[in-house]
Design a binder for these strands. Structure first.
Lengths: 203, 203
DNA sequence: TGGAAAGGCTAATGCTCAGTAGCCTTGATA
DNA sequence: TATCAAGGCTACTGAGCATTAGCCTTTCCA
């Protein structure tokens, strides 16, 4: 079973209003933070009062968890898709970084909230989200290790290089704007090449 | 008058207890976020009750503002010091990035809070902090522009390159630990070199 | 030695919030 | 047409929060 299948199964069907609420919550969480967002505001964003939200959603916390888990599943999926069937390790890294960066432009709110609001999760949910994030980080680090083992990459520190690549994605989520003067493709392409120079990949 | 002088003049003298309170607040703001930190907790961290804080501090918001402005002044200072008297533009960039990264290891809590809690500032304070941050970002971007103008650097986009360099610093603030297995010097040196390859500096 | 300033404390104030209770309307179905 | 579920609403509950009021002890100088 592919990651994509698992993800699809794991994601519950949402009614249109349920989806609208999640979208509104995502936007507000990104803008002012989870703690600073009130249920009244989320309600107002979809044209209802705060308490009416609870006909669709079990709690504010659950809204955050759902957003985060969905984003993490999504990120795993695009990664898997990006490297599937690609043999050359440099190609794999470049494609993985491109997918990483593209995800952070296309889902910048999810990525932003996913990175910043981990501490707003209660202990149980935090453990789940952190575990899923670590598993993703290991995928990137694994690619670098693979290249180093094959003498295709030359880095002072695998850890440092992988941190750098991951951090660049997060940075994108923080400043990217669809209507900005840097296009998605431009950023994706440039960062894909950054990645290769950064790990000292020849040619 | 140097940036350093200005900064010293602007920073009010703090009593030892006042400093302890600020340190405690910084730690807590970094750990759980400004909104999620209570005055009771800040007080407890220095051995007094919440209300007693107000004998030393005018508000929780002021505590945050003071921490942020101090950090921004500090960052400007280390930048100025790093590039002072250095002529070669590649050297200047490398030294600036080294200073940037070193700052983010040595003052990771301040940097972390400074980046994440901007939205917790009220409008007036936010404007001041954002302006000071933008001025710093312009310094870095200016260095890259200078190198490009002199045909020493070759980048697809000055903006993209400067974002990338700035984001790496922020990333460091998020994951660096003094007792981790990556030393400050190692990170600083590696990122200084990253910077040069990233802007396509020859040799 | 007396009095004032510094700096603790508890109690209270006034506000905001997430979430619940319970009611009402609407629209589909039997 | 009677019923019932879905999904709004207002009013309420209970908790937590920053900050203020006002009191008490200690310390330090005149």
């Amino acid at each position: 079973m592919s990651g994509s299948d698992r993800a699809v199964l794991a994601r519950p069907q949402l009614t249109p209003r349920g989806r609208a609420i999640r979208d509104a919550a995502l936007k507000l969480f990104a803008e002012r933070g989870y703690e600073a967002t009130t249920t009244t505001e989320i309600g107002a964003a979809v044209g209802i009062r705060g308490p009416s939200l609870y006909k669709h959603v079990s709690s504010k916390q659950d809204l955050l968890v759902a957003i985060m888990l969905d984003a993490m599943d999504n990120l795993h999926d695009v990664h898997a898709l990006a490297v599937a069937g690609v043999d050359d390790v440099a190609d794999r890294l470049r494609r993985a970084v491109e997918a990483h960066v593209r995800f952070h432009t296309r889902h910048r709110l999810e990525a932003f909230v996913g990175n910043r609001e981990i501490r707003s999760l209660d202990e149980v949910n935090r453990a789940v989200v952190v575990a899923r994030r670590s598993s993703y980080e290991r995928l990137i680090r694994g690619l670098i290790e693979e290249g180093v083992a094959a003498s295709r990459f030359h880095v002072a520190s695998v850890k440092l290089a992988s941190y750098a690549l991951l951090d660049l994605g997060m940075g994108v989520a923080a400043w990217y704007r669809e209507d900005g003067d840097l296009s998605e493709d431009e950023i994706v392409y440039t960062y894909g090449r950054f990645a290769l120079t950064l790990v000292g990949a020849a040619g």
